[in-house]
Each structure stands twice: as structure tokens, then as C-alpha cells.
Amino acid sequence: MSDETIPCQRDPQLGSKIDEFSEILKTQSHKLNPFGMSEKDFYDSGIFEGSIQRVRGQISASMGEKKIFVKHVLNYMQDNNYIQDWVEAGGSNRHDYSVTLNNGKIAAIELKGCLDGNNTNISARPPHAHEFIVWSVCQNKGADPRHNVWSGIHTRFSADIIS
């Protein structure tokens, strides 16, 4: 995959700042410790790792802005007669949207983040879908979109495609 395939790229200055702040966070978090623990006890307690994972999970799970963006795109497509209709699939499904194309066929859409995580290939093409689309909307300003697309295709989707 060439660099022209994905025109977006990571901001190297932002990447450097993220790297620097991450190091400060790892080595200075005990100073934020509201529990009165020693530095060693704080890092041994699991509070730091658990908090990092909790914040990461909350950010990753946040679909609000992505869903608003997708609704605008799908509404635009419907208003301009590029598609007949669309509906949200609901939380019990392994896809996010069902779109009725102008020819009557159904396209199921699974909305994903940056394609570099374990949840990238957690989805399932529903039996009623003629097409299945994985749509990546990455909100992480520090992500490397070129790497993430490569990673998603080569290390996440390739096994599913082959099987």
C-alpha cells in the first residue's frame, strides 16, 4: 500500500508531544495520587494501569461524534437520492446500519475506529445484507492513519477474508 492510497498522515509534532507527555504520565502520576500512598505502593496497586485502561476504554467506546457524522452522511445520501433509506441496526446486532440501495439491495455498515485495535474485526455480516462495509472513522488525533489502515487490512481483515 503506497502513501498515496491514504492521503491522511500523522502530525509528527503532535506525535512527539504525545510521546513526551506519556513518559511524564508514566513517571509522575504518583504525584497526583489522592490516596496518600507512597510512590512504590501507588504503582504497585494497579491504580495507574487500571485508570489508563478505563480512560482508554471510555474514549474508544464513545461513538457519539462518529454516529452524528455518519447520520449526516447517510441523510445527505438519502436526500440526494444516492440511497433509498437507512436505519440504525440497534445494539443487539454486530453491525451498525442497514442501508437500502437504489436497486433494492441492502448494504450493512459496521462503524469502526482506527482499525488498529482488537475490536476491528468484531462484526458479522447479517444474512440479509448483499454488501458488508467496514467504515473507519478514527477520532484519535495522535493516530497514524496510514499505519492503521495497513494494520487493519493486513493483520485484522486478511484472515477473515481468506476464511
Rank of each mutant, 00 (worst) to 15 (best):
Y97S: 03
N148T: 00
M63A: 11
H147W: 03
P127L: 03
S45Y: 09
S151I: 14
E131A: 06
N93C: 13
V55T: 11
G15H: 09
L74V: 06
A108T: 01
E65R: 12
E39I: 01
W135N: 02
S92A: 14
K112T: 00
S45I: 03
V134G: 02
Q84C: 09
M37S: 10
I161E: 08
R56M: 10
K67S: 04
G142Y: 04
K17W: 15
K17Y: 15
S123W: 07
V73T: 05
E88N: 10
N118Q: 12
S62H: 14
N33A: 12
K141M: 06
G152K: 02
N118L: 13
G117I: 12
K141E: 10
I18P: 02
N75I: 10
S98L: 14
I122C: 06
I122D: 07
F48W: 08
Y97K: 04
P145L: 01
G113T: 07
E131T: 07
Q139I: 08
S158D: 05
A159E: 05
P34D: 15
S163P: 03
S60G: 04
R54Y: 11
S158N: 00
F35M: 14
K105M: 12
K17T: 08
I68R: 13
N80H: 15
Q13N: 10
I24K: 14
A129W: 07
C114V: 04
Q78S: 10
S123K: 05
I153V: 06
A124M: 09
I24P: 03
E20K: 11
H30L: 10
A129I: 07
D79I: 08
H72P: 00
S45E: 11
I24F: 14
A89G: 13
Q84N: 12
Y82N: 10
S163H: 08
S45F: 05
R146L: 01
T155R: 01
N103W: 12
T100H: 03
S92V: 15
A129Q: 09
C138F: 07
Q9M: 05
F157G: 00
Y82H: 15
V55I: 15
Q9I: 00
I109V: 00
H147M: 03
N148S: 05
I18V: 15
G90H: 11
